[in-house]
């Protein structure tokens, strides 16, 4: 049985390689949407924020969790929406 930390580290390293492979194929013309879109994905920390806000361990951890929920939701909702707005503007010659 693999140690959980080693397993997590393995996933991390492999995901970095996947990231490099996928993202080197993004053309320069889409670099701004790439940034805002990948930025929205990094808002995945919302998952942890929800767990912290809802678990009701201590008052402090709930407060921290709720602030984190606000921050991460701004990141996720705003990020995907503004990326969508930008990408819809890119059009071919007609």
């Amino acid at each position: 049985m693999m140690d959980p930390f080693v397993a997590a580290l393995t996933i991390f390293v492999l995901a970095v390689f996947v990231g490099f492979e996928v993202i080197t194929k993004v053309p320069p013309t889409l670099h701004t949407p790439l940034m805002s879109g990948s930025n929205a994905i990094s808002g995945i920390t919302l998952v942890g924020a929800l767990l912290a806000a809802g678990a009701q361990e201590t008052t402090l951890s709930t407060i921290l969790g709720v602030i984190a929920v606000v921050f991460a939701t701004v990141n996720v909702v705003g990020g995907f929406l503004v990326t969508h707005r930008m990408l819809k503007m890119f059009r071919r010659k007609d």
């Binding site: 997590a8 996933i11 995901a15 970095v16 490099f20 808002g43």
Partner: peptide, 27 residues
């Protein structure tokens, strides 16, 4: 986000965080 994934032992945070980390480094 990836580091927070290690704190919570949550794979979706680790994977997404490292994708974004790689993306930013490339740029």
């Amino acid at each position: 986000a990836a580091a927070t994934g290690f704190v919570l032992m949550n794979n979706v945070l680790i994977i997404s965080g490292s994708l974004v980390g790689a993306s930013g480094l490339i740029l």
